[in-house]
């Protein structure tokens, strides 16, 4: 064998080992999901007697789904999660893009740079520090809890700083001032310039912020659980928590509820996987 052939053979061998390691790790990563999927089609007795069996002794059953759906009020909580996630994401993008635009273009003004510095500094504050005062101000003093709009505005307020930070970077580096000046000379107002020239150019950042924030809003538990205590307003994570509290012994129903809670985002991931991975990567690296 020549030197080159030896190197090629060694490379092939190391690739084979890597693939084996990857496959093993991959199985370890998805095994909990597989266990949920195989057990969701079994009766309660079959799950308890052998959770590892592919099919239960009493055969294949679909009855866990309708029962869990009804008890969890699935369509209602799904609708709540959807409304809250969509509106919070849109609102976050609109107000953050607008704010970052004026902050970049008036960067020398202390008022603007001060707000921006405050926002960046606030990103290190964990939610635990804000939850008690938040509940006492909006629950105790103002009494505005248990409205979807309250949660939407709070979600927006919490994510404004991160989103503004990302839009700030995009406008600062990617959008030439000359472009705006041209639009202003052509008779656009600042408002029109922003919406017709700047905002469309922010598409890549809008996509990143949408993915990061929508996922965070969809999965958030602590804040929604403090704001929405009325059962009819529950989101998927709160409903899952409440469901487990009531039916934890009815393991078949629990499996169905957990699968239902995961399904929407997993289906979305199947189609948008490339964009989600790209969005999260660029968001994580910039943030």
């Amino acid at each position: 064998m020549t030197q080159n052939e030896k190197a090629a053979a060694a490379k092939k061998r190391s690739h084979a080992i890597m693939i084996i390691v990857l496959v093993l790790l991959f199985i370890l990563f998805i095994i909990p999901f597989i266990l949920v999927v195989i057990n969701v089609f079994k009766t309660k007795g079959d799950i308890l007697s052998n959770p590892m069996a592919l099919i239960g002794e009493h055969g294949f059953t679909l009855q866990n789904f309708p029962e869990a759906m009804a008890k969890m009020n699935f369509f209602n909580v799904f609708k709540n999660s959807l409304i809250i996630t969509i509106l919070s994401t849109i609102l976050t993008i609109l107000v953050s893009a607008m704010a970052s635009f004026v902050i970049v273009r008036n960067g020398k003004w202390k008022f603007c740079s001060g707000i921006f510095a405050l926002m960046v500094a606030s990103m290190v504050i964990p939610f635990q520090v804000l939850m008690v005062p938040l509940v006492s101000v909006y629950g105790g003093i103002l009494g505005v809890l248990n409205h979807r709009i309250t949660l939407i505005l709070m979600h927006t307020g919490f994510s404004v700083s991160m989103a503004t930070f990302m839009f700030h970077g995009a406008i600062h580096t990617n959008i030439p001032l000359e472009l705006e000046e041209a639009a202003l000379i052509d008779g656009c107002s600042r408002w029109q310039t922003f919406w017709k020239v700047v905002f469309p150019l922010l598409k890549p950042t809008i996509a990143t912020v949408t993915i990061i924030d929508a996922m965070a809003f969809w999965n958030d538990y602590l804040l929604p659980s403090l704001v929405l205590t009325d059962k009819s307003l529950y989101t998927i994570p709160i409903a899952t928590q409440a469901f487990y509290g009531t039916y934890s012994t009815d393991i078949g129903l629990v499996m169905a509820a957990l699968l239902l809670a995961m399904l929407p985002i997993l289906i979305l991931y199947l189609f948008l996987q490339k964009y989600i991975v790209a969005g999260v990567t660029s968001g994580a690296v910039k943030g």
Binding site: A99, P133, S161, R190
Partner: peptide, 28 residues
Amino acid sequence: KQVLMFAGPGTILFFCVVVVPFVYGLYL
């Protein structure tokens, strides 16, 4: 006017849920 129009909504929300609760939390 420009700054208030563009940055107003975001800044108000940010103050309402982050800055005010943080300061109020210190008082609590």
